[in-house]
Design a protein around this nucleic acid. Structure first.
Lengths: 353, 353
DNA sequence: CTGTTAGCGCTTTCAT
DNA sequence: ATGAAAGCGCTAACAG
């Protein structure tokens, strides 16, 4: 019933080997033979069985993308970027949404071990444990948002040679979180703010750690004092932003500005602030991170850092292609540039004007 | 290097058939043999090659989910639902994001023809063409958001027997769009609104068509006049909502309320309305559809229809499982209930109070 | 209850 | 430039 390669071969009067070559675009086949085969393929409506092909070639043509949660609009855009290059190379994207249960992340690696996926892009950005590093060692993997961290942070029990070893012995793509946040602080200080709260993500996320570093450095650089009680930890959600703002309001700390680790946290915070009678930006300024589509539509429109989401995906997939191709044995680390988008959530004029 | 079944068999002193049976949990194997095999599997660190298995079983264990755009937060939630049951049955979900280019939808069906996917859930909700129907006929497919449409709408050239044929000879899952919108209109009329604009989706979307029907019926039922110039067509995005609201403002039509086809359209409209000095709900009421997470966080919090997104995915996948299992030859149509969530975007009191 | 064996449909040496 | 043929690793008759 299902026509197979041998049928095509018979119809065209050639061998299956030749049909296979034509389909693989082998330049060694004579043009005339090629036409005969193509005609037969067309005539018989032949569609190669990818199950057989994949089995033979030991490749699933699937790549796995693990995200913390697809509910964060950052990831769909990145995935689009990944898809766009994946499709060009005939890969399908399998989605691994771990709903922020990072323990389940490693379970997805099974897909590689059993050949159900040829490579993985891990976008989940928790602090890598030794177990994690051990697990991905040697696998065709690209890490997103996990940048270099010194070994001492890993609490390793054995530091054989005392050298300053770094964990990203894996290919990674990232944005310059530290610098981006410094830009935010620069901007805020320029507007007259000196007391800036930070609604961060979870403590154990590398992104949180890096953005905190940027926050600190930005403050110091601008001669502001760094006050740990101005740092709040959430979980990236609107809800967290809302709760954290409430907490801030209770605290008696009276920052004139808040920097939030992502736009969703900002949206939640804005709601709480407004509900408590604060005007934005007049009473308090706020700036987000990511520049999701919504940022433009909230009231007031959100000043934020735009990171190149689609490109992030493109780069990640291109890197993975290299890795799967064996091209990149050692690490390769891509760092993408972000930039500040100034809207209305911190006022366009110098504070106090 | 990679240990394979024969190695396990040798190690355990049995045949590959037995190993295969143990792995398939065949109850016919003696407990003792089973233990021996399991021990060998463990000892040798054996992981079955799913490529070989899939080839042999003629199944990819992939299911494809085609969405209009993953950027609409509705779909991630549905996909989560799909995943949750897919995973239980050892299926992986392949994501097909067509970025609203509905012409590309059919291209994804290739994945079934070449066995790269065992089944498809099509969530893209354009008006089905005859070509579309022809293309999916006989395939293991479940349609989401495409409900019954009479044949005359299809502009078929031949209506052999004049019978009232319906197109959903395919299994579908849907929500009751018509009734849901009627509820919205009821609510609005109860609040005193008589002139209600409708920011719809694209004309050729079934969802748009159904919601328009609900809008009309709701108006008629409540003794309001249906005015076609109060209907605006967009493309589901915040941007569309924004533009449409601007258009409405220019038009001189002065509705006291707007119903938008989805929450994102509502968010865009709210921005435009506010920018033009209108207060919501005092000057104009607005209600959305979907109840995405954001709905609660916009200012004012959005009254909207909550549809069971996760369950939608669960039902779709369960249906697909049946279809792939050959259980459902004829159609099966699941209709899920939605309900109105009252927040603040149309005021809690009777208009004029 | 277990083993033998014949493929699944394709790709890829190895010959020619 | 093409063909013959040997599998890839597993499952499923079938036989015992």
């Amino acid at each position: 019933m299902m026509t197979k390669m041998i049928d095509v071969a018979n119809f065209a009067g050639v061998s299956t080997a030749t049909v296979s070559r034509v389909l693989a675009n082998d330049p060694k086949v004579k043009e005339k033979t090629k036409q005969k085969v193509l005609k037969a393929v067309d005539e018989l409506n032949y569609i190669p069985n990818s199950l057989a092909r994949n089995f033979r070639k030991r490749s699933s043509k699937n790549i796995l993308v693990v995200v913390p949660t697809i509910a964060n609009p950052l990831y769909p855009t990145i995935i689009s970027g990944i898809q766009s290059v994946a499709r060009e190379h005939n890969y399908q994207v399998i989605l691994g949404d771990i709903s922020r249960n990072f323990e389940t992340e490693l379970a997805y690696l099974e897909l590689i071990r059993d050949k159900a996926a040829d490579g993985v892009i891990l976008l989940a950005a928790e602090l890598p444990t030794e177990e994690f590093i051990e697990a991905i060692k040697g696998l065709p993997v690209v890490l997103g948002y996990r940048n270099t961290v010194k070994e001492e942070n890993l609490h390793s029990t054995e530091d054989k040679r005392g050298e300053n070893k770094r964990i990203n012995i894996f290919p990674t793509v990232n944005i310059n979180n530290v610098k981006s946040v410094e830009c935010v602080i620069d901007h805020l200080v320029q507007l007259g703010h000196k007391k800036i709260a930070f609604f961060n993500g979870p403590k154990n996320s590398i992104v949180s750690i890096d953005r905190l570093k940027g926050y600190k450095q930005g403050l110091v650089k601008n001669g502001c004092s760094f006050e740990p009680e101005l740092i709040y930890y959430g979980d990236w959600t609107m809800n967290a932003g809302y709760e954290l703002a409430l907490e801030l309001l209770q605290s008696g700390n009276d920052p004139t500005a808040i920097f939030t680790v992502n736009d969703e946290t900002a949206v939640g915070a804005i709601k709480a602030l407004k509900e408590n009678g604060l005007r934005i930006p007049e009473d308090i300024a706020i700036v987000g991170f990511d520049n999701i589509e919504l940022a433009k539509f909230v009231d007031p429109p959100l000043t934020t850092i735009a990171q190149p989401k689609f490109e992030f995906g493109v780069h990640a997939m291109e890197l993975l292609l290299k890795v799967m191709n064996g091209e990149t044995i050692s690490q390769e680390n891509i760092v993408l540039e972000s930039h500040l988008i100034i809207r209305e959530s911190c006022g366009s004029k110098i504070k106090g004007d």
